[in-house]
Amino acid sequence: MFDSTKQLTLGGNVRDFQWTNPHCFLQILIQRSGATQEWSIQMDNPQALYRKGWRPGSVKAGDKLTVVIHPTRDGSHSGRYVSGIGPDGKALLDE
């Protein structure tokens, strides 16, 4: 489903951080060509993220993030989380 040979960097604001099974999702609003796009970024499950130090409040709605993803092969606005930079300019925790 994800093209792990490709990486895409997205910058935008968090609309929602879904702390759910079987995967957490970052919903990010991206501005492109004057239009707003919503991207769904799949992450690991809450247990795996919790073990790395993530918590449900690690990312909040409105936070400005830059994330690197492996995009989905079908070309939809979605992908698999690879890494990210938080509002403070620091790298987000690993998955």
Binding site: N21, P22, H23, S40, P46, Q47
Partner: peptide, 15 residues
């Protein structure tokens, strides 16, 4: 690196 068992579930928000 776990202080309690965190539940897993493959249906809750299966997108």
């Amino acid at each position: 690196n776990l202080d309690r068992l965190i539940p897993t579930d493959c249906t809750e928000n299966d997108r």
